[in-house]
Each structure stands twice: as C-alpha cells, then as structure tokens.
C-alpha cells in the first residue's frame, strides 16, 4: 500500500514523464528545424525531472521492504493507467502546434509555481529536485508564453487555432486546482502546498500573456467539478493509448534488461 507522500511524488513524476513523452512525439516533425530542437530540449528536461522524482519514489517504496526492489523503470513501465497520477492536461494529444504550445504554457506556469513552493520544503528529497529543475522550468514558461503571443497576435489562422486550443484545453483546467488526497497530506505535513494556494497567481500570469497575445482572458469557473481527474487515476482514453505504446517492450518481455 503506497503512502500518500509517495503518491504526491509520483504525481510530479507522472506529470513530467507524460508531458515529456508527448513533446518527444514532435521530434522530426516540428514546424522548423530550430523548433524541433527546442521542443526536444523541453522533452529532455521533463524526462530528467521525471527520473529524479521516480527515483525518489522508488527509494521510499524500497524502504518499506516489500521484498522486490523497485526502480524508476518499474514505476514508469509497469503501472496501469488508473495508477498514474498526472493531470489530464498533460496526456492530451499534441494536436497542432497551437495546442502543444498552450498545453505547455498552462503546465509550465503551474509547475514553476509548484517548484517555487517546493524550494522551501523541509523534505530535502523534494526541495533538491525543485532546485535542480526550477531554472529550466522558468525557461519553459518563457518559451511557451512567447509562442502564445506569436500565435495569438500573428495571423488570422494562428489566432483561430489557438482559440480552438483554448476551447479544447479549457475543461482540463479545473482539475489542476482541485486538491487530491495526497496533496492534502503533503500540505498538512508542511512538505507541499495545496494547488488552491497558487490558483490566483496562475490565472494572473496566464492572463498577462493572454492580454499581450490579444486573446480573451480566462476566469476560474465557479465550483465546476471536472469529471475526469487524472490525479485520482481517472484518465482519458488518451493515456491508455499512450501507455500501451510507451510500455510495450517492457510488458512484452518482462524481467529483461535494456
């Protein structure tokens, strides 16, 4: 039985892995060579973060002495969709560049605020990872924010597409700020924060970019419960598909070294 603090760590890990995986799907198919390299860099950053979080979670799980020693790969490759704790936001398919950019912008703005808070965490396992990751995360926010502006205030077509993306990703937002049990646990232990605490800041920062991008500002909806809740293991079909591809070799040939 996994303790809630470990689940909190897995939430961070899963967010980073799933989004990193999605970004890596652009490799070789980006709109221009330089952006192919840029988004691959972001994918690498995220996968690096994921590995750090998975390794931390594995250490915790191995402490409870269940017999089998778990590795980062066990956690990434042998959990089913309902055991993943990532936001539904990050498992969304790439769609076009506008959707990819907006998804990144939403997530990185959120992740930056989380890492800024985790820097102060008395749990050094978490604060160390936050410290290692926050600079690159700030870059992700900057990079994606600038693209939101270019697309929002670019051509008629880019504007239309990013507005489509806004509509498409809007249902994924409420979940971000609805605390799951492991977030309540982390906050009560003084180790993490409730996402509610950064909600106002998130909207402020997002809207600041939207205004420059000449896009309509977004506002928190009143008490809307998101039906899908990735944090609680209730995912979209997209995650099942993603995992079936990602995990195929480990599942087909279990117990092997790669």
């Amino acid at each position: 039985m996994m303790d809630l603090l470990t689940t909190y760590i897995l939430h961070q890990a899963d967010n980073a892995l799933i989004l990193g995986h999605r970004n890596s799907e652009w490799t070789g198919h980006g709109p221009i060579l330089e952006q192919d390299i840029a988004i691959s860099n972001i994918a690498l950053d995220l996968i690096g973060q994921a590995r750090n979080f998975y390794q931390l979670a594995a250490i915790r799980l191995n402490e409870t002495d269940t017999g089998q020693i778990l590795t980062e790969d066990d956690l990434a490759y042998f959990r089913d969709a309902q055991e993943f704790r990532n936001l539904v936001l990050v498992e969304q398919t790439n769609g076009d560049w506008a959707k990819t950019i907006l998804r990144q912008f939403y997530f990185s703005t959120y992740q930056y605020l989380i890492f800024a808070a985790l820097l102060q965490s008395p749990y050094t396992g978490l604060s160390a990872i936050a410290e290692k990751s926050i600079k690159e995360t700030r870059y992700h926010v900057k990079w994606s924010g600038e693209w939101v502006i270019r697309l929002g205030d670019g051509t008629e077509e880019s504007r239309r597409r990013i507005q489509e993306a806004l509509k498409g990703l809007h249902p994924c937002i409420p979940e971000i700020f609805q605390a799951a049990d492991f977030e309540y646990e982390a906050a009560s232990l003084g180790i993490g924060i409730l996402p509610e605490q950064i909600k106002a800041q998130w909207y402020e920062q997002v809207n600041e970019i939207f205004i420059t991008a000449t896009l309509p500002v977004i506002t928190p909806e009143k008490e809307s419960m998101q039906v899908l809740s990735g944090k609680n293991g209730v995912h979209s079909e997209q995650l099942t598909e993603l995992l079936s591809e990602m995990q195929v070799l480990q599942r087909t040939y279990p117990g092997c070294e790669w």
């Binding site: 060579l33 330089e34 840029a38 860099n41």
Partner: peptide, 20 residues
C-alpha cells in the same frame, strides 16, 4: 547561423542549438 522570426527566438534557438 540559424533561422528565427525575431531576436528573442534567435537567442533561445542559439541556446538550444549551440549551447546544449
């Protein structure tokens, strides 16, 4: 050299391409 639409992008691209 590299292609970028504006100076900000050029610097970011340069970071991504030449300082990996």
């Amino acid at each position: 050299s590299l292609y970028a639409a504006d100076a900000r992008m050029a610097i970011e691209n340069a970071r991504d391409v030449y300082t990996r």
